[in-house]
Design a protein around this nucleic acid. Structure first.
Ligand SMILES: [Mn+2]
Ligand SMILES: [Mn+2]
Ligand SMILES: [Zn+2]
Ligand SMILES: [Zn+2]
Lengths: 143, 143
DNA sequence: CTTGAAATTGATAAACCGTATCAAAAAGAA
DNA sequence: TTCTTTTTGATACGGTTTATCAATTTCAAG
């Protein structure tokens, strides 16, 4: 029995609304994905090669993109690759990214979130989601 | 006579310190770059094709990367391409994006910017650039 | 439990972006 | 001008992601 009942439900709801099918591969990839904070398609390909050596890389890409459409993942470009962030893992958070070594620090700041709401309201918008990434050098890379 | 005396000076200083040469191409690309807030190598390639049809794409990439090293530009991954931001350009802003109609509203919020700096400092980071995008529905699309 | 239309998969070709290569050209100090 | 070093432009290349397509799987209908 899967531990990720809630997210599996979100996926199934999305599949139902779009005439998509629930497959062994999608279940396998979701289970693996939800154990991560963020991962690349290539990393997941190698991780899952043990469980299912015939799982194709294209399927990994397709499925991770599907998760984005279902709201379970968020794609983020860093360096030459795409990171797929697990939205449900730790609740919402934003990222500090070191341009020197690639280190990623997660943070949450209620004041910023509140100001974002203010900006949106002032412009007549209702926020559904947002993305805040701060790029710079970590203490180690600055020296 | 160029309007970008200050930035041309910064470039020449960098060139001098690194045994690099001042070329017609570097001057041409800097002039075009400073007129933009941000641009991709490909966009610049097509823009400059009129002025110099023989200017190579590799030269654009090399030169924009050189500008980054000289502190005149900052590379930022956006979608699948690299955006080169003009750091000397005033009027930094972030974006509100309507997921209904695609409308984009630009905004600037000093309080958010200040809080970003605080978050970075608290984590030992020095910010080079950042990206804040708020996705939601505009007043028209909400109804 | 079948059946069959529609969706999915896996292998791999292709597209795409940015970098490396290298011979010819240009820069710039002497 | 001369001569060494750097730069350029054309293009090959490498890594990442998407497109293609025949074979397989899903799942709703019978
Ligand atoms: Mn946030
Ligand atoms: Mn900003
Ligand atoms: Zn670092
Ligand atoms: Zn709208």
């Amino acid at each position: 029995m899967s531990k990720h009942v809630k997210e599996m439900g979100i996926l199934k709801e999305h599949l139902g609304k779009h005439q998509l099918k629930f497959t062994r591969q999608r279940e396998l990839i979701l289970d693996a994905f939800l154990k991560q904070e963020h991962i690349t398609a290539e990393e997941m390909y190698h991780q899952l090669a043990r469980k299912d050596p015939h799982l194709g890389l294209a399927t990994i890409y397709r499925t991770l993109n599907l998760f984005c459409e279902a709201g379970l993942a968020q794609a983020r470009h860093f360096g030459t690759q795409t990171q797929y962030d697990n939205v449900s893992h730790k609740g919402h958070h934003d990222h500090l990214i070191c341009t020197g070594c690639g280190k990623i620090v997660e943070f949450e700041n209620c004041d910023i979130e509140r100001l974002q709401e203010e900006v949106a309201t002032r412009n007549g918008f209702t926020i559904q989601t947002h993305r805040l990434e701060l790029y710079g050098l970590c203490s180690r890379c600055r020296h």
